[in-house]
């Protein structure tokens, strides 16, 4: 599986600005319970159905400084209550080329994760973007090594589908060469390591 980065100027606030760039459909799989980071989550979620977002359409574009990622996926018809829908792109670490992406990094080989998170009316002052380091499924902490290119994101529901743009430093993908996708169905109380993920790395051209 591979995706090409198209050269195009993208406006993060214009969710239609990817235009006719072809989308690649990426299948997602449930993040396995046995890779969850602690006993509580392993015990409590062993028999729960999660990983409800089964696929995401992905487009990549660049303006030579920034990488723009367009992610579209079906929005559940079940209303969100406690948790919000979310999606993220993560980058294979240079020494983690043989790792499986389903863990979204590890303690030994963390990976960079850019996350978009839907915000409620109460959270309108919070950014929709999170620039994180991932040490495993849900083992996310703010990235303290960010460069000067801020991670930004924007998304909205259009005709029952989330249409999301995440953008950050192009260097991230130029170094990694491989990416993964992770998504959370908030209406199913998905968050952290309780979500769905790409089961193999996606090569980026």
């Amino acid at each position: 599986m591979s995706i090409k980065i198209h050269e195009k100027n993208i406006d993060i606030n214009d969710l239609a600005s990817f235009g006719d760039i072809p989308a690649v459909n990426i299948e997602l799989t449930k993040i396995p319970v046995d890779v969850q980071p602690n006993k509580y989550i392993k015990n409590a979620y062993a028999n729960k159905e999660y990983g409800q977002i089964k696929s995401v359409d992905v487009k990549l574009a660049s303006d030579k400084e920034r990488l723009y990622v367009n992610l579209t996926f079906a929005d559940s018809e079940i209303p969100n209550t406690e948790f919000q829908d979310s999606v993220g792109i993560f980058f294979c670490s240079q020494d983690g080329q043989s790792d499986s992406p389903v863990t979204i990094g590890s303690l030994e080989r963390p990976t960079l994760l850019w996350q978009w998170k839907n915000r409620t009316e109460l959270q309108k002052n919070l950014s929709q973007a999170k620039d994180l380091e991932s040490f495993g499924p849900g083992v996310f902490i703010p990235n303290t090594n960010s460069g000067s290119v801020e991670v930004v994101a924007n998304g909205e529901v259009v005709n029952g589908k989330w249409n999301v743009i995440i953008s950050g430093d192009l260097l991230a993908v130029q170094k990694a060469k491989k990416i993964g996708i992770v998504a959370w169905d908030g209406s199913n109380n998905e968050r952290a390591g309780i979500g769905s993920v790409t089961s193999s790395w996606i090569e980026v051209d």
Binding site: I41, Q123, N125, K130, G138, P142, R191
Partner: peptide, 25 residues
């Protein structure tokens, strides 16, 4: 600054003395 609002703490605490700040997530 590190809390991601995943709220497993709220599930796991048997005394249910952890609250969620819906403004700050």
């Amino acid at each position: 600054d590190i809390c991601q609002g995943s709220r497993f703490c709220m599930e796991a605490c048997p005394y249910k003395k952890i609250y969620f700040n819906y403004v700050r997530d």
